[in-house]
Write a protein that binds this DNA or RNA. Structure first.
Length: 658
DNA sequence: CTTTCAGACCTTTTT
DNA sequence: GGTCTGAAAG
């Protein structure tokens, strides 16, 4: 049922409200008329607010919300912004098209895929799916059994993806990033070609394909391009510094007829180059659109001046950036702390102590504090310490719920219902069954792919083997193919079938079962199985719900997060742990100038999350197995910083006499 | 052909 | 901690 609301027309007052709380530069961006606009928005400068108000402003000016396209880094970010715009002025703002480049590509391709030789019901491969497919080819071509060392499937997939994203040849990627594999360029090239053909044949697209195929569609079909350009007359792109070349090209193509393109970002916060992001996009925007208006947002509303003094110092050493200096009118505040601890565990103890202290003495809720780190595994020890002290926390980044084995198992069965050509999923699904290994699974997969019919596969299955497992799987496939069941019912049936298998496979199955129940609940929102599967890949659930009990919803949680996942967020108190040279920057990045620069920006992003308190900590004397070196110095990015900006402390361990 | 088990290996970051 | 690999047994 459609909900609606009748409102008196008061666009003048409404418009005043929209602009009321903006500073001069923000207002300039919000009220910008037609034509290209670049907004360089420093950390905490009200970037989101500016975008929200811009949407609200355009709608209040009579721009139909359907003709606005808002592209953000996550779909959640887009939804949140539109919700805020709607609350601020006009509920119609929620009708703006918002999402990620990938979800936008998905929507368009579901409509036009046949124009570029795909079926509209294509399946989307997530990262590990594409790894599996590459692995399959690697084996098929006999590269895995060779005596010479051949890169692993993850590495091969990575190389291929990089060459697509950065528009380089395989050879170039190898020369730049993997010189030791350069002599294998021809072989990897062969795999890349086969990978591309196979995906087309089997109606599969990986994350890169969504973008390249959309671009292809726009380039080769001027009518579609014009159509799209006409329907989205205003394009806004958030986090432009983290877009890659193809994404920028897509944006330019869609903006072709009207050039109403607004990009917002901060070159100093570009941290996704490993995914092909190129902060040149934001540097070069004025060259692509020489008439672009440029607005700088430099007033910071988040942090105290002592924190900004530190972050400004950190970023001032960056090699290339739009010159800007953040300032605040917020008075007072304490300088950040740099704390050295004897070892990792003392670092955890110190952090946990401070968290409790700030929570109890200053009444700061856990939810207004965060611990940030370079890589997910760096918080393991701290997690133990937090558990010991009953500090509730939620962790973001690192392991993905959707990539856990049990979830992938269930999804693989559902996927073959939608796309029998998906041989990777089919292979995985059949191998779940007792008595079916690689060989039989692949013959069953062939039958399924060639006949394209679940009935056929189900019949073959009962002939191949007559175990209970196989029988119930055969029945499951039949019931999924015949009855027109609601999506959650289908998920439920697969979970039911899977449960005994899971109980054999995993010791911690009760925990995993909860995840699957969660998946079932999630499915209730969907009308079609395919859209459910698509969403699950494009917007993965953040974390496993397993450790969360029902009553936990209102609990006050501390946040643990990788720096990457903390993008755009802020907290009263922030701890950055492992600010140790060799971990931040990582050992690996030290050889490459561009990578090192990105590590610096990473520290910058982390530090600018803090509003009031900022602690940087590092353990001394860490033995690094990979390089056989002892790491003991703080990050090189804070090395020469004067003590009045960053006072230093050392924690000494002592034996308690009790 | 399939299963199982022990040891090796490696751990950035994510749509 | 987790996945992957290889060898040996079923």
């Amino acid at each position: 049922m459609k909900k609606y609301e009748v409102r008196p027309e008061t666009s003048v007052t409404r418009q005043k409200d929209i602009l009321a709380e903006l500073n001069e530069s923000q207002r300039e961006a919000v009220t910008h008329g037609e034509g290209p606009l670049l907004v360089i928005a420093g950390a905490g400068s009200g970037k989101t607010k500016t975008l929200v108000c811009r949407v609200a402003y355009l709608v209040s000016q009579g721009v139909p919300p359907e003709s606005i396209l808002l592209l953000t880094f996550t779909r959640k970010a887009a939804e949140e912004m539109l919700r805020r715009a709607a609350a601020l002025s006009d509920p119609r703002c929620e009708r703006v098209t918002g999402g990620t480049f990938h979800s936008f590509a998905n929507t368009v391709l579901r409509k036009y895929a046949d124009l570029i030789g795909y079926d509209r019901s294509f399946t989307i491969l997530d990262r590990s799916d594409s790894h599996d497919l590459v692995g399959f080819i690697r084996e098929e071509m006999g590269f895995s059994s060779r005596t010479v060392r051949f890169p692993k499937k993850e590495t091969v997939a990575d190389i291929i993806s990089k060459s697509v994203n950065k528009n380089l040849t395989i050879e170039d990627v190898l020369t730049i990033d993997y010189p030791h594999f350069s002599y294998l360029a021809d072989d990897i090239e062969k795999i890349a070609v086969r990978y591309a053909t196979l995906k087309r044949e089997k109606n599969l697209m990986d994350y890169d394909d969504l973008l390249t195929n959309l671009k292809l569609l726009l380039v080769e079909h001027p009518d579609v391009r014009r159509n799209l350009s006409e329907s989205f007359r205003y394009i806004m792109i958030d986090e432009f510094q983290d877009t890659n070349r193809i994404q920028a090209e897509i944006a330019y193509l869609v903006a072709e007829t009207h050039r109403n393109i607004m990009v917002v970002g901060d070159d100093s916060q570009s941290i996704y180059s490993f995914r092909g992001a190129d902060f040149r996009n934001i540097m070069d925007f004025p060259r692509v659109y020489p008439d672009a208006k440029i607005v700088f947002l430099e007033e910071n509303y988040r942090s105290t001046q002592p924190i900004l003094d530190l972050t400004n110092t950190i970023i001032s050493q960056a090699a290339e950036k739009y010159p800007k200096k953040l300032y605040t009118r917020k008075g007072g505040g304490n300088p950040p702390w740099l704390v050295a601890t004897p070892d990792e565990h003392m670092q955890s103890v110190f952090v946990a102590d401070r968290i409790l202290e700030i929570h109890e003495d200053q009444g700061v809720p856990f939810s207004d504090m965060a611990v940030l780190f370079r890589a997910a595994y760096l918080s393991f020890d701290l997690e133990l310490e937090l558990a010991k002290r009953n500090i509730p926390y939620r962790k973001f980044g690192g392991f993905r719920f959707m990539e856990t084995a049990h979830v992938k198992d269930v999804l693989s069965v559902l996927r073959i219902v939608v796309n029998p050509q998906d041989e990777i999923s089919a292979g995985r699904a059949f191998r779940l069954l007792e008595g079916i290994g690689k060989r039989k699974a692949s013959s069953l997969t062939k039958i399924l792919a060639e006949s394209g019919s679940l009935e056929e596969a189900s019949r073959a299955l009962t002939e191949v083997k007559r175990s209970d497992d196989c029988k119930s799987f055969a029945e499951l496939l039949l019931s999924l193919s015949r009855a027109n069941l609601p999506v959650s019912e289908m998920v439920g049936r697969v979970v039911n079938f899977y449960r005994p298998i899971m109980e054999k496979k995993f010791d911690d199955y009760p925990k995993r079962l909860k995840d699957l129940e969660q998946l079932e609940i999630l499915a209730e929102r969907y009308r079609s199985l395919n859209s459910f599967l698509t969403d699950v890949v494009l917007e993965p659930i953040e974390s496993s719900v397993a450790d969360m009990t029902a009553t936990d919803r209102e609990t006050d949680y501390l946040t643990l997060s990788t720096i990457h996942s903390a993008k755009g967020l802020e907290w009263h108190t922030v701890f950055i742990i492992w600010v140790l040279d060799g971990k931040l920057p990582t050992m690996k990045s030290a050889e490459d100038f561009a990578q090192l620069e990105e590590e610096r920006r990473l520290l910058y992003v982390a530090a600018t999350r803090a509003k009031e308190n900022l602690f940087l900590t590092y353990p001394m004397n860490i033995y690094d197995r990979a390089t056989q070196m002892v790491l003991s110095k703080p990050s090189r990015f804070i090395e020469g910083i004067p003590r009045n900006i960053l006072p230093r402390y050392t924690v000494y361990e002592y034996q308690d006499s009790f």
